[in-house]
């Protein structure tokens, strides 16, 4: 078990796991390399309770800038597909038309913090990526070839986000992301 660096204060509501907020900004002019990726990502802070989460969440303005991403990951997991926690993993990707990301992002992270996915230790974290024409949500898990887990994550997403039945959800393994050097292009599985 990971050593926790942050603890709930007296009277606060503890979370099952500590989570760390990250922020990153895309620099479209430069090719995406792991070096520029590491340079562009910034750790904002770690929370151990529901109360601490809301204090951070209120501080972060979301949805008003194009070309940035907010990340909420379990403490200790690095936001790189090559990290040990992510090596065999993958992610569900949901593309959203502009205007929906804030609400959907909040619902995804509340489901994650509240342990609604019921997949043991599988969830790593979630990302919202604010783009120019569309926004992208993703949720990462540890074991991409565990179909029971990935199906359960997909079904929970449909439920908590109340997704229209025609919403396209795509699953992509991190190996595929490494291979084509893109997080969202050329997705292999589409359901």
């Amino acid at each position: 078990s990971r050593r926790k660096t942050v603890c709930p204060a007296a009277g606060e509501h503890p979370l099952q796991y500590n989570y760390t907020f990250w922020y990153s900004r895309r620099t479209p002019s430069r090719p995406a390399s792991s070096q520029s990726y590491e340079q562009n990502i910034r750790q904002i802070g770690t929370v151990a309770s529901v109360d601490q989460f809301w204090r951070f969440y209120h501080l972060i303005r979301q949805g008003d800038l194009s070309g940035h991403s907010d990340h909420l990951f379990k403490e200790g997991i690095k936001l790189h597909v090559g990290d040990e926690s992510n090596r065999s993993g993958g992610k569900w990707i949901i593309r959203l038309r502009k205007g929906l990301a804030s609400r959907f992002w909040e619902n995804i992270i509340l489901a994650m913090l509240g342990e609604q996915f019921m997949v043991g230790e599988e969830i790593c974290g979630a990302v919202v990526s604010i783009r120019f024409q569309e926004d992208i949500l993703s949720i990462w898990n540890r074991t991409s070839n565990d179909q029971m887990t990935t199906s359960r994550i997909r079904d929970t997403l449909r439920r908590v986000l109340n997704l229209p039945t025609n919403t396209i959800m795509e699953y992509k393994t991190h190996n595929d992301s490494l291979r084509d050097n893109s997080s969202f292009r050329n997705t292999k599985i589409s359901l």
Binding site: E12, V50, D51, R55, L110, E115
Partner: peptide, 21 residues
């Protein structure tokens, strides 16, 4: 072990508690 589960409504209610500000 036990898992700490919260539903959405509970989490949203906590949003307005004095501890969350």
């Amino acid at each position: 072990g036990t898992r700490i589960i919260y539903d959405r409504k509970f989490l949203l209610d906590c949003r307005n508690s004095p501890l969350a500000r």
